[in-house]
Design a protein around this nucleic acid. Structure first.
Lengths: 141, 141
DNA sequence: GTAATTGCAAATACTTTGCCACGTA
DNA sequence: TACGTGGCAAAGTATTTGCAATTAC
């Protein structure tokens, strides 16, 4: 087993989880993946499809996210968010993971130069980016 | 009417959309909002709840997103994405909006200093961030 | 008048939970 | 043995679509 998987399983154990096949395979799958994966992708992946039910993967991810081993990406709600694009205006957001508060970041966005580099090096076109900061807001601390 | 709303409606008109009450109210609502909003929030907002059906708001947002007037935030899929947090490791992503390809950004992340500033100025705790670049990948150009 | 747009209701899709069986410690 | 975990099936919530009626141009 990949030593990083073993190490992560140990962290889980210390946090009170049991060492199960499903947990090991889930962690191994996430670790091998170069990119974030959806619940369905995980549940249907080679290592997990025979191993366990989708509900199990769901509950594992839920527990792992609570314990800070895994992160659920996005604005942390089930629903999609929409925003108006005003030409020449760009916004980054600061979001409270406890109460859902969303506010705009006042400071200038530090990402434009990297975006330029990516445009040149990768050949991607129509580039734009999204940047969100997450944390616990003062009222929720 | 807010001149920026009027201007945006004009852009929509130029892109072939019709000037409807629902469109005007939707754009006004998005523009007034300091933050991104979900479909439900929009459909149930003061200006829109009496004005039109949720399906209408959905289809408007869909058309506006196609035309680049509105942006749908997140990894651009219906499903949530999960990623393993490896201590000391941070990843940003580059995502193709056409084919869904997701790859890691090789360059170092330029956001840490801003994160530090936010930590100091806002009183948020447990801060972290997510940064994604979107665009059309070379194969899809 | 014609084609885009809308409302309503139904269909999908993804997520989440209940309950009892099972496996780990 | 005890309690966390898993499977299966059902419920919950958000998104998306079909179609006839309406409206903008």
């Amino acid at each position: 087993m990949d030593p990083l998987v073993a190490e992560t399983v140990d962290r889980c154990r210390e946090l009170g989880m049991r060492r199960t096949k499903a947990l090991e395979q889930l962690l191994a799958t996430l670790l091998e993946s170069e990119r974030p994966m959806t619940l369905s992708e995980l549940a249907e992946s080679e290592r997990l499809t025979a191993q366990c039910d989708k509900a199990t993967v769901f509950r594992l991810l839920q527990r792992l996210a609570e314990k800070g081993i895994v992160r659920r990406l996005g604005l942390h709600e089930r629903a999609a968010y929409f925003t108006l694009l005003v030409p020449g205006r760009h916004q980054d957001y600061l979001i409270c993971t406890e109460c859902g508060l969303i506010e705009s970041v006042k400071a200038p966005c530090p990402v434009h130069q990297l975006e330029e580099e990516i445009r040149e090096k990768t050949g991607f076109r129509n580039l734009y980016h999204e940047l969100e900061f997450f944390g616990t807001c003062p009222s929720c601390v």
